Amino acid sequence: MDLNNRHGIVTGAGQGIGRALAVELAGQGGHLLLVGRTEETLTETAKRVEAAGGTAEILVQDLGRPEAIDAVLAAVEPWDTVDTLVNNAGNVRAGRLEETTAADVQSMIDLNLVAPLQLTRALLPKLRASTGESGSLILNISSEIALVAMPFYAVYAATKSGVAAFGEAMRRELSGTGVHVATVYPGATDTDMMASQNADWERRPVSAVVADVLAGLAADEHEITATAPEAHDTHRLNATDPLKVDAAIVPGLDDLEAAVKDHRSI
């Protein structure tokens, strides 16, 4: 993928992976619509985008609400080109399923899964019309949990697995159209979203995750695993012999539950 001079939308752009991707696109001349829930953090990202050489507009919206999709469409309606969509916004609430409120379940479904589907659906006409020489890009941020589903994250795992399957289906549906669909699988990353849990998971720097994303896109990859290399054996084992992964996880269930019981970004 040629990422020069992109015109696109980055959701969840106020922090973490979304902010870092926005700054990288800005460094290649990008003009970006930064979407998120908090004006202060979006404004900070916009400053970093401009410092990196790009330009930015901000849109304060909770993408978990249906009306936010129309707001994004209205914001980019004047643009001649929309060739990039980064579906990054997400939230999490860990814990036993029966102890998770219905509201928290719905919040994860609405933001993590429904929002990227609906935003992609709404923007596809512009993405198709903007392929040009470099092609358009839909970049979906899933999670390592779609490769190895973890206990106490059942709803989050379901939504991120849905994002992965959505990307696979759309990659095939859009084959030959000039719209490149890529799905990213970050592992535990050192972001604010991870701050409220205490599991013994090594958190990769955001810069390492984004470097993997950029390398994957440069190689025209569609499935980009942005996790620590030592985790790849577990991914493969889970695909071929998941009960062995169960056997490794189950003895530590009580400790894991205690470590993630307060993990919440909703």
Rank of each mutant, 00 (worst) to 15 (best):
S142V: 03
A13E: 02
R37Y: 07
E202G: 13
S134A: 13
N4M: 10
N87K: 09
G187D: 05
A211H: 05
A199W: 09
D241H: 13
P66S: 00
I9T: 01
V250C: 14
A149R: 04
G30T: 01
T225R: 13
A211W: 12
D80Y: 11
V209T: 12
P229L: 11
V148P: 05
D2Y: 02
V23K: 02
K47E: 13
S107W: 14
A164G: 15
N140G: 04
W201E: 12
L117G: 06
I224L: 08
A94M: 04
T84P: 09
E50R: 14
F152K: 07
L119F: 03
V210T: 10
L63M: 00
A122W: 06
A74D: 05
R37A: 07
A74R: 01
V260D: 02
L113K: 04
H232N: 13
D200T: 06
Y185V: 02
G27S: 03
L237D: 07
T183W: 07
I266K: 13
L33D: 03
R236T: 08
R204Q: 13
V181H: 02
D246M: 15
D83G: 01
L123M: 10
S130W: 10
V250Y: 07
A208N: 07
G64Q: 00
T101V: 05
D2C: 00
I138R: 04
A102Q: 12
R264L: 14
A219P: 03
H263S: 05
G54S: 05
A68P: 01
V155Y: 04
D70V: 09
L59R: 03
D83Y: 08
K160I: 01
T227V: 12
A164T: 08
Q15T: 05
I17M: 04
L119R: 09
E57P: 07
S161C: 11
G12K: 00
D254N: 15
T45F: 04
H180S: 01
G167H: 07
L214W: 15
E223G: 12
G167D: 07
T81D: 10
S265V: 04
V250G: 12
S136D: 10
L59K: 00
V184L: 06
A149C: 06
L97E: 05
S207M: 08
N4D: 11
N4Q: 10
R19M: 02
T84G: 10
G162L: 04
F166K: 13
E223C: 14
T225K: 13
Y156G: 09
D83T: 06
L127N: 00
P251A: 03
L237K: 00
R6S: 08
I266E: 06
A188K: 02
E144A: 13
I58V: 14
A115N: 00
V213C: 08
G162A: 10
G167A: 02
V49E: 06
A26T: 04
T234M: 14
A103K: 11
R19I: 01
H7R: 10
T81G: 04
T177M: 10
A219Y: 06
E257D: 11
A89Q: 08
R171Y: 10
G187L: 07
N88L: 06
V10F: 13
G12V: 00
T189N: 02
V148D: 03
T225V: 15
M193L: 04
N91G: 14
D190C: 06
A211V: 14
R96W: 13
E257Q: 15
R264N: 14
V35F: 09
S107M: 06
T11G: 01
G16C: 04
N238H: 12
Y185K: 09
H235N: 12
R37W: 08
V35A: 15
L42C: 01
